Amino acid sequence: MTDLTGRTVLIAGATSASGLAATRTLTAAGARVVATGRHAEKLAPLAALGAHTETVDLGDERAVRDLVRRLHDRGSSIDGLLHLVGGWRGGGGLAGQTEEDYRTLETSFTALRHLSRAVDDDLRASPAGRLAIVSSTAVTRPLAAGANYAAVKAASEAWTRAVAQGYAKAARGAGEPLRAAAVIFRVKALAGLEDRLAAAYAGLWGAEAAELNDSIIALQAQGDS
Rank of each mutant, 00 (worst) to 15 (best):
T8V: 14
G203I: 04
T27R: 13
L84N: 04
G6D: 07
S225V: 12
S225K: 10
K42C: 11
A22D: 02
S116Q: 15
L193V: 10
R179S: 05
H52A: 12
K169V: 03
L71E: 13
A145S: 14
A199V: 13
A202W: 06
L219P: 05
P177N: 02
I11K: 07
V187T: 14
T140I: 11
A125E: 15
T98C: 03
A29W: 11
H114V: 07
E157D: 14
G13R: 05
A40N: 01
P177C: 00
P127M: 14
A209S: 06
A31L: 09
A199S: 15
V152C: 05
D60M: 02
V9E: 00
A147P: 05
V64H: 11
V33Q: 00
A138E: 08
A40G: 05
H114A: 03
V152L: 06
S136C: 01
T25I: 05
A138W: 11
D214K: 04
E99N: 12
A44Q: 11
A189N: 14
L43I: 00
A63K: 07
E176R: 12
A125T: 03
G90Y: 06
R62D: 15
A47W: 12
A199M: 14
G166A: 07
A221F: 08
L10T: 03
G87Y: 02
